[in-house]
């Protein structure tokens, strides 16, 4: 099996690579590439993302044919795809970080800034927070409710259809932190930095 981590200059993806390789050992081949042919032929795709919504969308657009290839992979062929952090946020129609920016539009909704309640809450939302699992997602197998995951973000994905939400977390508000829509999975937190529980989520995704 081939799992491809999309390398599109979206910031630091070393930790994502390390964690997938740790889980995969020698049994699963982990590719890190922006090569469209390789993405097309892989079994699963991981879409990481750091920095701003706009910088990530721009980076996707700067590789000719990449968005079409991802659409084909996830929407036409319905093969499993995992978005992490801004990778998840880009599933939305629109993001509002820096400037209004069009997303991939895979899951209707928008990405807007967390409400810091007039400075009562620090932003970014950094650190370990508990996740409330509200949907029996395949990537949560073996994960207990209220497990801690590592977060670093100032923006949140607000999907139109609440049925896609698989977990939330509580900070300044109730934040969507995981979504699942058919073959498309996303986590706002960083499974690659969430120790054993995070690696379990990666293992679950690889074994889908």
């Amino acid at each position: 099996m081939n799992v491809t981590i999309v390398d599109y200059n979206s910031g630091n993806i070393s930790s994502v690579i390390n964690s997938f390789k740790e889980v995969a050992k020698d049994k699963v081949n982990i590719e890190v590439t922006s090569d469209l042919t390789k993405i097309k032929s892989s079994d699963k795709v991981v879409l990481p993302g750091q920095g701003s919504f706009k910088s990530c969308v721009d980076a996707l657009n700067s590789i000719s044919g990449l968005i079409d290839t991802l659409n084909e992979f996830a929407i036409n062929h319905k093969k499993p795809l995992l978005g992490i952090c801004v990778g998840l946020q880009m599933f939305a129609d629109t993001g509002y970080e820096e400037i209004e920016t069009k997303g991939l539009g895979w899951i209707p909704g928008k990405v807007s800034k967390l409400d810091n309640k007039n400075g009562k809450y620090k932003l970014p939302h950094i650190g370990w927070n508990e996740i409330n699992i509200i949907k029996d997602s395949k990537i949560f197998q073996g994960i207990e409710n209220n497990s801690h995951m590592y977060f670093v973000h100032s923006y949140e994905f607000i999907p139109v259809d609440k049925n896609v939400i698989s977990a939330t977390t509580d900070y300044s508000s109730n934040i969507v932190c995981s979504v699942e829509k058919e073959n498309i999975f996303g986590t706002q937190f960083h499974p690659e930095k969430s120790d054993k529980m995070g690696l379990q989520i990666i293992r679950n995704f690889i074994s889908l």
Binding site: N12, S14, N18
Partner: peptide, 30 residues
């Protein structure tokens, strides 16, 4: 370290430039 530890790793000391930061991130610092 980044191949063995799966919690966030912060690295400091002697970081002078954007290039230094880039190098540390590429090595696996978070």
């Amino acid at each position: 370290t980044s191949k063995k530890c799966f919690v966030p790793l912060t690295v400091g000391g002697g970081v002078r430039s954007v290039e230094d930061i880039n190098k540390l991130l590429n090595c696996g610092a978070d």
